[in-house]
Amino acid sequence: MTLPPKTRYPGYDVLQKRDSVSWDDATRAVIDERMAVPATPVFCDAVQWRALSALCDCLMPQNAASADRPMIPVAALVDAKIASNHGDGYRDARLPPLQQAWRTGLAALDA
């Protein structure tokens, strides 16, 4: 028997507010852009993609997709962020650049 996931606000779904006054056009555009991720990796090769997907599944496990709640494509979102080569606005100068750091880290996970 599978128990339903524990939520802080049972029955509340922020995505149901999409067409309400709670979301403006800018909010809808940002969410649409974030959810429009390619089905295939942009940055990662096949080996890196498997490592990234496994990492995301371990760090952010999700319940199975349903008709009203698809799974969030976490690995694809991370892959797109790496491919854009835009960090979060800060980086320790002693560390390698963003894409090189991810290649090194994913290779280490694969090994």
Rank of each mutant, 00 (worst) to 15 (best):
P96G: 08
S84T: 07
V14H: 14
V47F: 02
Q100W: 00
A101F: 07
T27P: 00
P96I: 03
M35Q: 12
R103H: 10
V30Y: 09
A65K: 03
W49Y: 06
A101M: 09
Q100M: 07
R34E: 04
D25R: 10
P41A: 15
L109E: 06
P4R: 14
A111N: 10
V47I: 06
S53P: 00
Y12L: 14
A93W: 03
D19H: 12
S84R: 09
D32M: 03
L55K: 01
D57P: 01
Q16R: 15
S84D: 12
L109D: 02
G105R: 05
P41C: 10
P97V: 12
P5Y: 01
D25P: 04
P61A: 04
L109Y: 05
A83T: 08
S22L: 12
M71E: 15
A36G: 04
L55H: 07
V14E: 11
Q100C: 09
L95R: 10
W23M: 06
D24W: 03
Q99I: 05
D57H: 09
M35P: 01
Y12V: 11
L3H: 15
D110G: 15
R8F: 15
S22W: 12
P10R: 02
R94W: 03
M60G: 00
G89Y: 06
Q48G: 07
K17T: 08
R91K: 08
T7K: 06
A83D: 11
T27G: 02
G87M: 08
D19Y: 05
G11F: 07
D13V: 05
P4H: 07
R28H: 03
V42C: 03
V47W: 00
S22P: 00
Q99P: 02
V21S: 15
R34L: 06
R50T: 11
M35Y: 03
A29L: 04
A108H: 08
R91G: 14
L59Y: 08
Q48N: 03
D79R: 08
H86C: 14
L109T: 03
P10M: 04
S53C: 05
L106C: 09
D88E: 13
T104D: 13
A26Y: 06
P97L: 06
L77H: 06
H86A: 14
P4N: 11
V47R: 11
L109H: 01
G89N: 07
I31L: 13
D13E: 13
D25F: 02
V21A: 09
A29R: 11
Y9A: 11
L59N: 06
C44L: 04
A67N: 05
C58K: 12
C58D: 14
N63F: 07
S84K: 09
D13F: 10
L95E: 13
L52Y: 07
M71Q: 15
Q100T: 11
D45W: 02
V47M: 05
A111W: 00
P61N: 04
L106M: 08
